[in-house]
Design a protein around this nucleic acid. Sequence first.
DNA 1: AATGAATGAGCTTTCATTCAT
DNA 2: CATGAATGAAAGCTCATTCAT
Lengths: 199, 199, 199, 199
Amino acid sequence: MDRKLTQRGEERRGQLMAYATQRFAQNGFHPTSVAEITEGLGVGKGVFYWYFDSKEELLRAILADAQLDLRRRQRAAVSGAASPSDGIEAGLRASMEWSIEHPDYFRLFQFAATDDRFNGGLRKGEQVAVNDAAKVLSAAMDAGEIPDGDATLLSHALLGVNTHLVQQVHRGVLDATDDVIDAAVSFCLHGLLGRPSPR
Amino acid sequence: MDRKLTQRGEERRGQLMAYATQRFAQNGFHPTSVAEITEGLGVGKGVFYWYFDSKEELLRAILADAQLDLRRRQRAAVSGAASPSDGIEAGLRASMEWSIEHPDYFRLFQFAATDDRFNGGLRKGEQVAVNDAAKVLSAAMDAGEIPDGDATLLSHALLGVNTHLVQQVHRGVLDATDDVIDAAVSFCLHGLLGRPSPR
Amino acid sequence: MDRKLTQRGEERRGQLMAYATQRFAQNGFHPTSVAEITEGLGVGKGVFYWYFDSKEELLRAILADAQLDLRRRQRAAVSGAASPSDGIEAGLRASMEWSIEHPDYFRLFQFAATDDRFNGGLRKGEQVAVNDAAKVLSAAMDAGEIPDGDATLLSHALLGVNTHLVQQVHRGVLDATDDVIDAAVSFCLHGLLGRPSPR
Amino acid sequence: MDRKLTQRGEERRGQLMAYATQRFAQNGFHPTSVAEITEGLGVGKGVFYWYFDSKEELLRAILADAQLDLRRRQRAAVSGAASPSDGIEAGLRASMEWSIEHPDYFRLFQFAATDDRFNGGLRKGEQVAVNDAAKVLSAAMDAGEIPDGDATLLSHALLGVNTHLVQQVHRGVLDATDDVIDAAVSFCLHGLLGRPSPR
DNA sequence: AATGAATGAGCTTTCATTCAT
DNA sequence: CATGAATGAAAGCTCATTCAT
């Protein structure tokens, strides 16, 4: 679907994506029908297929957009960091903040992770982020700042903490205060530091 | 569906659940049809509805079974622990081991978490586990073993690490060696210890 | 679709094929919807897909059945012939009679010939019939009964006469009397004989 | 749609018809969408409906054009013939040559013959041609050149041979050499001559 | 003349569920 | 208990056609 869109077309496409994001996040992808989306926007069903090849493609487009936005945020945060460990912390904070600000995207990520049809695109993105983090961790290990360990594994551990805590926030189990982020960051950094070097 | 089942009936029910677990995990819940399940087992569709009220109920039954099994394993592990912190470690290890051993159940948990129709049952179970863990953490805090903090939040952090690393193992990103579990445990324990409390 | 069908199922399948044959022949394949077929029989839409994988498959099944029937008729006619030329005449007559008796099947053959999706199956059948005829013609040539010529081409010429005249009968341009068949046979035989070999 | 078209307009209309002819012949009329045609030409959908009232009308226009062209060719051929039987042969040859040169048109004729919505126009044209031929045949019968018979029926027999052999050429079953036409003509003429009148 | 967007009826197909046997 | 057949709402998607610009 490489249609050249007019200004108006671009807007419609955006509307469809925004509304679908909402419905998919609230109702689930499979239970949300294309008709529900177009009716919700008060347009004909054909409109949908003018802009997207299929319902699947729509979700993929949404996910790609969201990932792009998240990555931009992370990059911006990390690039302003003074030291490697600062970078890790900044990246962590940026991820969590973004995820808390975008509950719908977060939910779609979670769903997409359970479905191989969408998984692919996400995993590549995740891998990039994890690799970035792993590189920083490796550097820190080489510099003796943190004990040696499997940098990839540790990066995933960070991601796990991050993700799960955000999920609890969205579920209302935890409050969306800065404390959650602070606690997560603290937990992660100490987890990385490992056995406090004897003094 | 509180039918009293004969011996043979129990077996059939078990077959249905086992096969469905497989299909749901591999194909997804929505994309897997009831017909696929009954045909896969070579039985008529009536059989399915003799044992389950609906496809939804089937998944709920599978999830309940799985949770029960997981909890049993955790309880057994924790109950044999000498100290609170030993209990935390044992519980963590037990969770990860079970999750690695049961990829299909793990996938279904992940999926169920994204769908409010199934979420409910799981969350109660998760909450119980988290509360158990939080209690131990609180005790450890009171005993000065670990610094004060939000016990619930920390429990979720543990769960996040656990879950995410297992996922990577299932995805083949990480190898299913004991090292993963060791690293996770170490990461978690140090995360909990946080800044070594001044003495 | 290799379902084992009960007696009742076999009947339903037959009903669907018979009714669809009628509708496809009268209305055309594309313009006839599956709904039209099931509604015409007063059954649910699902019934259709219980017996056939798709509308396409249904047509293919109809065509295969029809071809089988036609071939049986031809074989029976030819097998009873005393001489080669008798066989040609008998086959020709059998073809035309069958085609005149089965206007719906005839129409579907005509349509299928215009659509590559259905063409395949038919052409194989046609080729078999043509080859059979060509063999007889070759024999007749060798025996000096008819002048030498391209046996395949001549077989197709016979088929062309046969087919087109039947079409005119169905259209009401020609009357469905034995005269048409007689005339066709005469035309064909003389066409084959060609310039009476000088003696 | 009796729009007066500018020079450029005529060209566009011609482009649309040419491209559609191709697509209809290759893909089939029903399976080819208006969008496919306009996109194939890189023009907007509005263009199509500027020149044609509907997809149906487009096909009718194509068929009418094709018929006109064929008839012109036949008329030219027949008009130059010295004798009635020469005329028959010339007409036959002209038909076959034209049909072999225009596979797309030929295919569309075949398709149109199976659909009552388009059949009408064609049949009138066919009838004219058949009547022309029948008149010549009648004359030949009266003159004792060929045995008496149903002139209309025989004309259709000629048409059948002609049509079917051309089809085989397009299908690659027969080679598009002059031999095919020669053989067809010979077959037809001898078919008409029937039992060589005893002298 | 031409475009891209929009319409919406209608299509093929799926599928959870029910039911006669 | 079990089966195969049936149901029919609803899904995803297509497409001839219209229309504002």
